Simulated scan of single mutants.
Amino acid sequence: MKKILIFLISLFLIYLIGINTVPSYIEAQRNPVKIPGPYVVSAEAQELYDRLDFIADLHCDALLWGRDLTKRGDRGHVDFPRMREGNVAFEMFTIVSKSPAGQNMQENSADAFDNITPLTIAKGESPSNWFSLINRTLSQAQALDGFISKEGENAILIKTKADFEKLLQMRESNPRVIGGMLGIEGGHALEGNLENIDAVYEAGIRMIGPTHFFDNELGGSAHGESGEGLSDFGKAAVKRMNELGIFIDLAHSSPAIVEDVLNQSNEPVIVSHTGVRGVLDSQRNLSDEQIQRIAKNGGIIGIAFFDMAVGTPEIPNIIASIKHVRDLVGIEYVALGSDYDGSVAVPFDITGLPLIVEGLLQAGFSESEIRAVMGENVKQFFLKNLR
């Protein structure tokens, strides 16, 4: 009996050590920063950046890793203190619930081993989350709600237009106030159940991408096997999202799904993190025709920061991607969509956004255009379309 007790205690201690070390090690490996801060730009760029009253980013997966976002981290890309350090007013916190082993841009199977299952266990999450995608999703939503609650009057979970307007009003007197909105990366999180759309809406989710890196019940991924458009379930899901006021995120969707959503949806769409084929010809990225249709829909396109979306060197190619959208359809349709903390290497963390302003200035963008890209377009999009 004594040996069994010692064995169980040893297992428990190993588990505790794993909770404290494994997730942080994995995150540090999966989310490197190529250029460590602090970041220095020209006086002109810094002065312009300091004049910006609303800076926004449309995609960040920081909730996946289990960090306390109220504390400044020494790994990863985003947390609340670094948002404030970078004067960032708004972040879209997206929820990843499944990721296939061997994940790649070309082709992934929905049956591949799920990388998120061992991470979920290693983080010490409830056993109810270990094998349930919807439970993992709701748990991450609850985590952001908890982080924001700890911030008191210094942070707002954005669910409605009134919440967004409150954020803008509060920042007039207190620029430390930040806002976060919840999104889901991949409709597999719904587990094929339309009722789960209502459940995630009640949890605060206001954006859902039909697919991520593999095909699911809603249809085909840009990186899946089928290339299919919306299934019957996918069409019903789009209809329900429109009814509730959940934005549809077309990042990672197959071209057929992009076409189907734009044909069916009566609400503007978001592409939260992408590149453009005019800069990097990849199945990951938007064609000119897709960009034009998204603009006609009244949507908004977030340009990602990592090499597989924009190519290398990243910063000039981020600027080139922004310029491509501007020149094709107008400055009002383009925004920042970093994919921070999304298992990608990025050139800088969220405190390095002045480097984007520097690049835009060097490319001849006006101050009004820079304001639009850095956050004004996101502000106007949500003021117009949030309910």
Rank of each mutant, 00 (worst) to 15 (best):
N285W: 02
Q140C: 08
L182K: 03
H273T: 11
E376P: 00
V238M: 11
A141E: 07
I291K: 06
G66Q: 07
Q264E: 14
D232T: 14
Y49E: 09
A112W: 03
K123C: 11
L144V: 15
A56C: 10
E225Y: 00
S132R: 10
E195S: 14
R84K: 10
F131V: 12
R136W: 10
S173L: 06
D114I: 05
D281F: 06
V378W: 00
V88I: 15
L386E: 02
G186T: 08
R67C: 00
S282P: 05
R136I: 13
Q29N: 14
H252I: 12
S343M: 13
S139Y: 14
V279I: 09
M83P: 01
E228G: 03
G229Q: 00
N104A: 11
E289W: 02
S128H: 09
Y340W: 15
D57K: 04
I322L: 14
I208S: 04
S149Y: 06
W130F: 14
G209F: 03
M83L: 13
V378C: 00
V279E: 01
Q290H: 13
A62P: 01
N297M: 07
A309C: 13
K235F: 06
V238N: 05
Q46T: 08
I318T: 03
S10F: 12
G342T: 03
A295E: 03
I156G: 05
I26W: 11
H59N: 13
E259G: 06
K239H: 12
N285K: 02
L63V: 13
G342V: 01
E367A: 07
T94S: 15
D307V: 12
D163G: 13
F12T: 10
I158T: 09
M170H: 09
I148D: 02
A256Y: 04
H252W: 06
G275M: 07
